[in-house]
Simulated assay, not measured.
Amino acid sequence: MTTFAKIPNCPIYPWWQLSPIYRSYVEGDPVSEFIKDGFRADVASYGLVVNTFSGLEGVYLNYLSKELGHERVWSIGPLLPPDDVGPVERGGPSEVLASVIFSWLDTCQDHTVVYVCFGSQAVLTNKQMEELTLGLEKSGVKFILCVKGKTKGHVDEEDYGDIPSGFEDRVTGRGLVIKGWAPQVLILRHKAIGAFLTHCGWNSALEGIVAGVPMLAWPMGADQFANATLLVDELKVAIRVCEGDETVLESNDLVKFLGEITSEKWIVKRAIAKYLSKAAFDAIGKEGSSFKNLDAFLRHVSESGFGV
Rank of each mutant, 00 (worst) to 15 (best):
P8N: 10
W15S: 14
W16Q: 14
L18M: 11
S19H: 06
I21E: 01
Y25P: 01
D37R: 12
F39S: 06
Y46A: 09
Y46Q: 10
G47L: 06
V49S: 02
G58K: 07
Y60T: 04
L61C: 05
Y63Q: 11
G69D: 03
H70A: 02
V73P: 00
G86L: 00
G92D: 02
E95W: 00
A98W: 02
Q109D: 00
E137N: 13
S139R: 05
G149M: 14
D159M: 15
G175E: 14
L176R: 06
K179Y: 07
V185T: 15
A195M: 09
W202A: 06
W202T: 09
A205T: 15
L206K: 02
E207S: 03
V210N: 11
A211I: 03
G212L: 06
G212C: 06
L216G: 07
W218G: 01
A222G: 07
E234G: 07
L235N: 05
E250W: 06
D253S: 13
L254N: 02
F257S: 04
S263C: 13
E264Y: 09
A271V: 09
A273F: 00
F281R: 04
K286I: 11
F291H: 12
L294I: 07
A296G: 03
V301C: 11
S302P: 00
G307V: 13
